[in-house]
Design a protein around this nucleic acid. Sequence first.
RNA 1: GCGCCUGUAGCUCAACAGGAUAGAGCGUCGGACUUCGAAUCCGAAGGUUGCGGGUUCAAGUCCCGCCAGGCGCACCA
Length: 524
Amino acid sequence: MHNSAPKTLGESIKSRIEHLIKDKFKIHEQVPNPEFPKNLDYGELFTDIAFKLAPLLKMPPNKIAQEISTELQDFGAEVKGGFINFKIPVSKSLEFLGIEKLDLLSGKKILCEYVSANPTGPLHIGHGRIAAVGDSISRILKFCGADVVREFYINDAGEQIEKIGLAILGKSQEYKGEYTESVKRKIQEMNLSDSESIGFAASRIILEDIKKTLARFGLEFDSWVSEKEISSKYSKKAMELMEKYLYYQEGALFLRTTMFGDDKDRVVIKSDGKPTYFGNDCAYHLFKVERNFDELVQVWGADHHGYINRIQAVLNIFGFKNKFVVKLVQMVNLLKDGKPFQMSKREGTFVSLDELIDEVGADAVRFIYLTRTADSHLDFDIDLAKKQSLENPVYYVQYAHARTSSLFREAKNKNLYDGYENWKQENWKKQNSRLKTSERERKLIALSSVLYDIISVSAKMYEPSTITTFLMSLAREFHSYYQKERILVDDIDTRFSRLLTCEIVQKAIRTGLDLLGVRAPDKM
RNA sequence: GCGCCUGUAGCUCAACAGGAUAGAGCGUCGGACUUCGAAUCCGAAGGUUGCGGGUUCAAGUCCCGCCAGGCGCACCA
């Protein structure tokens, strides 16, 4: 496959339209990217540009659409009720396939921070959702050309760490439970006595468990930042930069975040002289700012939404003018037997991400998380997820991929593959091609090239589920095609054309699944 | 009380800066395996997009007011 066009099919149509309306109608107008229609009968892309131009040009939309579409015949443009639909011809689709990287974000340095769970217990299913979303966003931004740093902030300082220390000494009612007991057994060999050092030792042990879980879930981080370490390095400088906005009240040091739109001023140093979590976060964010990122992406549980304004305030104080994106991921409500199940780490009643992966499998768990948009509340019924593990949508998509692999295996076994690679070279993008494609193959190839537009959309919205949803419709088209059409037929041109279609679909599914962090198996 | 999020088919969810006949999966009902993998396909049933106003060529999407649920509103993290 070739690899020359960083532009997507949709972007290409868009810029063609921009030139067109400049020439024809003498206007400069921002043209939106063509969209993916809900209904595939309308083609693989459509644009509503004629409606947008109608009031400007004082012409009926249908007429405008007609005039534009005559110049877009090579993209398969058809006008219907003012809309311009694109049924992309095979030759055109082939120009936009096999892209390894888009240039939407090339040259951008982006920091993605996510999970950052307190090392006071194992990751639970809520962290799992954030992990899946954050990791997938990182993959998508990277695919769009960005230089992405994936960061985990370790909250290894503060009161919770002391509390876990106290719990291990048996002096606290919090963090009870089997897991803490197992940490306790490891700590006892270390001969520590005060709650703080015990708490810190515990946090390191727990962090190792967290790393193992993340690895099982397919997550890798480029950077691990310790709160304890970073606050000791950056607190002083942060305080100096914030000096103008600090004041004492009742023995505590406050930061005037209200000057930047926060509801109330926030305490950075408590009256007992210790920094708050937010106080240390100021230091951490100074560390972020000093690394000169073009964009800071933050994935948080929705319960942190009240935290956004104060961080924005701190970033303003530090002079950060670049893009700050907060992706809020809504809560996961755990259901068991269809009934709400209350989780609490401090109470020791939670379902760990590890347990969930054990029962349902990493691929299925990730796919379920990424099927929903991040801001929809998610009811996760454990029993249902287990029960449906064999009829989960993830297998639908993976199966489509496995089927394509299987076809190539079968073709090779039956000596129906010989000459395919040469044939492909000779007929890819060639005039007088021996490629024989029906409407079904045309559509599959077109959809596969539209994938890259879908990826752009998901990057702009920081929303992996866009890709998930698209993959399901691509898989649906493929399964339907497979059922209807025999691939390994005698006629060589037909057989190779169909194999090529399968290869293109396979590549698209693999690319998409990879961005979700889900495996694309050759056999199931 | 204030702020953020959500309300779409029996259930779980889609619908990309407002666009076409609101789409899937699960479940239900009826069909398709002597041929490349039936973890599949084909078909049917299922909707006043929580309610009421408004904005316009066009509203699930935007604005206002209700109703219901979730989450915040710490010198916790």
